[in-house]
């Protein structure tokens, strides 16, 4: 039995004649936390949407284990993959608890109400995400950081095998950034795995098993964090001179912008 969860052939995607993804491929193994990094407009979110079956690539396929992802039933796909939208919307003033419970929808049979087990999953996720105290609050009146955590909790409540998260820590304070990365790290164990779009390279280096560095729709480098996060590659892709270190934990300080690239 292979340990591959998600795998793509060579993918290309263009929108209004602009190449967004230019012949790239990606593979995700069990127990892995993968970071997608790169400057704005590199195509990270688009790649994530293709993996989540929200966009159809112009060429190339996505495989879930050995099956093509598009041949799965919608409900099977929903149980396999969860996608966490960047700045996701909350359209009605549901309570935090009810909103998180929406993550259980793929697990419910027609007409079935939330079971005891479903409720336990929701309770557990609320505690893990530090939201138990807010469970009765109107989710539309939360702060930006609380809101991202609620949406992450929703995705975790789906108990997916793969979590595709688009900038889950962008709006969070330092403490909750660490907490969220820790949650993702714990999530991506055993049979599960996760792909995360990140801008914080130090946290990416510390928590991710592998990184894909993207630029202009292409993958510039891939491998373990220390292989990808080199001063040379960062200068090439971001146009920024960086100082890096690894003690006691990986750190990175952008020093100055380099000339035109």
């Amino acid at each position: 039995m292979s340990s591959t969860l998600l795998k793509t052939t060579v993918l290309s995607f263009s929108q209004t004649k602009r190449m967004i993804l230019d012949a790239i491929s990606i593979e995700l193994y069990k127990g892995e936390l993968i970071g997608l990094i790169g400057p704005n407009g590199a195509g990270k979110s688009t790649l994530l949407k293709i993996l989540a079956h929200l966009l159809k690539p112009d060429s190339g396929q996505v495989f879930w284990k050995n099956k093509e992802l598009s041949t799965l039933k919608a409900n099977e796909r929903a149980k396999a993959l969860a996608w966490l939208e960047q700045n996701g919307a909350i359209h009605w003033p549901l309570t935090v608890e009810r909103l998180v419970a929406l993550g259980r929808l793929p697990h419910l049979a027609a007409w079935q109400k939330l079971t005891e087990a479903d409720q336990q999953v929701v309770d557990q996720v609320l505690i893990e995400t530090d939201l138990a105290a807010l469970r009765g609050r109107d989710a539309t009146t939360l702060s930006g950081g609380e809101r991202s955590r609620v949406l992450l909790a929703r995705a975790l409540a789906s108990e997916p095998q793969v979590l595709l998260a688009d900038e889950p820590i962008a709006a969070l304070d330092l403490g909750h950034q660490l907490q969220t990365m820790q949650l993702l790290r714990e999530f991506a164990q055993g049979e599960r795995a996760s792909v995360v779009v990140l801008h914080d390279l130090a946290l990416a280096a510390r928590y991710c098993d592998r990184l894909y560095l993207m630029q202009h729709g292409k993958i510039v480098a891939t491998g373990k964090p220390e292989q990808v996060l080199t001063p040379e590659l960062l200068a090439q892709v971001y146009g920024v001179e960086c100082v890096l270190g690894a003690t006691p934990y990986p750190w990175l300080v952008p020093v100055r912008r380099l000339g035109a690239i």
Binding site: K49, A52, H53, L54, R77, A78, L81, A82, W83, E85, G88, A89, I90, H91, W92, L94, L99, L102, G103, L105, P106, L151, R154, S158
Partner: peptide, 10 residues
């Protein structure tokens, strides 16, 4: 409630 895209992934 979570928007069309997230609903689609559900």
């Amino acid at each position: 409630t979570l928007g069309e895209s997230t609903a689609q992934t559900l």
